[in-house]
Simulated scan of single mutants.
Amino acid sequence: MMFLLKSKRSRSLLFVLLFLIPGVKTYAKVGQVNNPDSLLQKAYILNIMHKVADWQLNEWNTNGFKHPKVDWTNAACYTGIYALGSIKNNEKYLTALVNIGNDLNWNTGRDRFMADDYCIGQTYALLYTRYKDKKMIAPFILLADSIVNKPHDESLEWKNKIASREWAWCDALFMGPTALSYLSSATGNRQYLNIATKLWWRTTDYLYDPAEHLYFRDGSYLDKKEKNGKKVFWARGNGWVLAGLVRVMENMPANDPEKARFEKLYRDMAAKIASLQQPDGSWHASLLDPESYPVKETSGTGFYCYALLWGLNHGMLDSKTYWPVVKKAWAALASSVQPDGMLGYVQRIGASPDAVTENSTEVYGVGAFLLTGTQLYQYLNKHPEAGKN
């Protein structure tokens, strides 16, 4: 039955009735922020980060871990939880990570040389830096030493299970070099950073398109095309890269001989990514064919917003150019959080662009969101005037 409710009172009554019907969701439209003016207030940023993080922790505590605790999916989430826990008076989030580490006996995954399986090492190294408990990094040090000693001379072609041995896919650049770089900072052992940078450029030489300033997902995508005939560049895949890039640079000493090369790559990618932002402030699942995937995607958007904010916080990007970009991106992210704290519009696990909905969620999207919020909070601490315009 279709009918029109002409009066405001009738519409309000319908809303109340819907609220009382079991199974009907009545949250404010996902994709809409009730008070856009509050988005850049530090209290709002902290509150929405707490909301998202607490939803995720409660999900784990209530329903268990959907993926193994050591898995790359959760490991990406831990990076954001750690970032939030590093803000004063948020230590409960660090405690949650220590408990997870203890449950795992501080081990990495079973597939020793696959970057996904030691992504968690970056969180172990960060926790060790804070608490100085050697058990937190002892198993990872043994693995890292064996990575340093491997020849790394296999072809990166996408065959023969190469991902189990080398960084042959772009996602790996968030998983592997970051973990080794943070371990290098935690231990003072420069070998770990050296191998991270060496292998970073090996992967880049194979998967980076210097004309587009973007990375192919893996060798199987080098010749693939989107529906519009353009190359396939996956939003989250390049999000993994850009976020991984800043996390490696975070561990580079000022005099590192590779620093200038990393900085150039970062600025080139940042400019390209900014140019591909959609009118709603997000990036869609396909960077060069957003029309085929017309809905915002929050894991790629989160990693881009995080990496661009990191560049602003470290004086590497021009605020006049990039502050408007991150403001729009943050609005797209914040409007994707449902009232209970669940982050929507996260593309499921995959290797290429795919559809999303407001109810699509995954842990790595939460990690990207929290990394972004933490960098935004830091930026507004340094530039409070930025929150007023």
Score class of each variant (00 low, 15 high):
F174K: 01
G109Q: 06
P151Q: 11
L193H: 07
P151D: 12
V232E: 10
I137W: 06
I137L: 07
G188H: 01
Y124C: 11
Q191P: 05
I141E: 14
D116K: 04
S164K: 00
D133E: 13
R165L: 13
W106C: 06
G237S: 01
D171E: 04
N160F: 09
G237A: 08
D153Y: 08
G239R: 00
P177D: 13
I195T: 15
R110A: 03
G219H: 09
W167D: 05
V232M: 06
D171W: 05
I137Q: 09
N238H: 08
E154N: 06
R217K: 11
T123K: 07
I100Q: 00
C119W: 05
Y221R: 01
N194R: 10
T204F: 07
L222N: 01
Q122L: 11
H213T: 02
N102Q: 07
S164C: 00
D117L: 02
W106G: 04
I120V: 14
D103R: 03
A172P: 03
R112V: 03
A186S: 01
L142G: 11
D133W: 01
D153Q: 12
P151V: 12
W167R: 06
G121S: 08
D117A: 01
N189C: 01
K150Y: 08
Y118W: 08
L180I: 09
L214N: 10
G101A: 15
Q191F: 10
Y206L: 06
S184M: 10
C170R: 04
P139F: 05
V148W: 09
P210I: 03
L173M: 13
E212P: 09
I120S: 00
A196M: 09
G176T: 11
A125K: 03
T197C: 15
N149Y: 03
W158L: 00
D205C: 02
Y124M: 15
T129K: 12
S220G: 05
K161P: 00
Q191W: 11
A115W: 05
N105D: 10
R217T: 14
N238S: 07
W169Q: 04
L173S: 09
R130T: 03
A211H: 10
S185R: 13
N238V: 03
E166A: 14
L104T: 06
L156I: 07
D133V: 11
A144D: 04
C119N: 14
T203S: 14
C170G: 05
D111A: 01
S155F: 07
I162T: 08
L245I: 13
N149K: 15
Y131I: 00
D153E: 12
Y206T: 08
T203W: 11
G244L: 12
R110P: 01
F113H: 14
E157W: 06
P210Y: 08
R202G: 15
R130I: 07
L207Y: 00
W201R: 07
A186Q: 11
I147G: 12
A211F: 08
L127A: 05
Y182L: 08
Q122C: 15
I100E: 06
L214S: 04
D223N: 14
W169V: 04
T129C: 03
A144F: 13
I100D: 04
A211V: 15
W106Q: 02
Y208F: 10
S184C: 10
R112Q: 06
S185L: 15
L180W: 12
L143M: 10
